[in-house]
Nucleic acid binder design. Structure first.
Lengths: 143, 143
DNA sequence: AATGCTTACCCACAATTCCCCACTAAATGC
DNA sequence: GCATTTAGTGGGGAATTGTGGGTAAGCATT
């Protein structure tokens, strides 16, 4: 389970450290440090999948009947997918097109999302959170 | 699997570098660097098939009963098909008629699409992605 | 046979990426 | 509170990738 939020800085070369807590989850729960990072279709941020989850998503896509929506989804998600193994310092190099998509410059926000985790430009994250506070109003889940 | 996106520039002679990641996939997964590039029937871009996939497509076409639609499809796809082996620098020379079909001038976008990959004029790709972002809204496939 | 055009193949440079080491700051343990 | 470990950040050098250009070979037209 990926949970918690962390903010790290991207350096001039476009590298960001994956939070140690997440790397730990990968090692202990997945025994596989490989992650796949893609564009999120929901908004301007990136989603990181442990390899196992990525395979699961691929399978689900393959089992879905073709449609214009699916093709759009694939173009956003699959085409942007890139596999990474963090370097010895635990960093990955985010490609320019991805940085652009997610408006990333320096301050990066990581947010655990259960089986995956999200990577945001900090500014976008803050804004999203504002919205979510309103959206979640009155949404009771038995609390 | 071809995945990830890359943008390269076409030079004055009409040559573009095939992204190294894709060339790698060809070598390791196919042991055959030959690719076939054709017009895409879906929109104004090109599709690149590793030889094995191309043969598979041909077989499927051969097994399809004749119809006006099939003839149209063949005219678009088969007639334009051209086989390439990247030169020592990993480039191919895109024929003028293909450049024209896909509105290519300089900035070229490569997009992995699983068993094949797509080659777009960057401007067209960007536009397509804008559309896809709207189209994919509300398309839930888990995550 | 000569000319011009296109294509194929080669070399060279520039930019990017990869991999390693080093430093600082924060967290942990005694 | 001090020493030790861990996390995050910066930077250097080597290797890879992408790009531009040059030269020779093939082809068609004249």
């Amino acid at each position: 389970m990926f949970q918690g939020e962390f903010s790290n800085n991207m350096d001039d070369k476009g590298r960001v450290s994956i939070p140690a807590a997440f790397r730990d989850t990968l090692k202990t729960h997945h025994a596989d440090e490989r992650i796949v990072i893609t564009r999120s279709p929901h908004s301007r941020y990136l989603t990181a999948y442990p390899m196992r989850e990525w395979k699961r998503l691929q399978a689900r896509i393959a089992a879905t009947p073709p449609s214009p929506q699916l093709r759009a989804f694939k173009r956003i998600v699959i085409s942007s997918a890139q596999e990474y193994i963090p370097d010895r310092q635990g960093r990955v190099l985010v490609a320019p097109s991805m940085r652009e998509y997610a408006d990333m410059d320096r301050a990066i926000q990581f947010a655990g999302a259960g089986e995956t985790f999200e990577i945001w430009a900090k500014a976008s994250w803050d804004k999203q959170l504002e919205n979510d506070l309103v959206l979640a109003q009155g949404f009771e889940l038995g609390l």
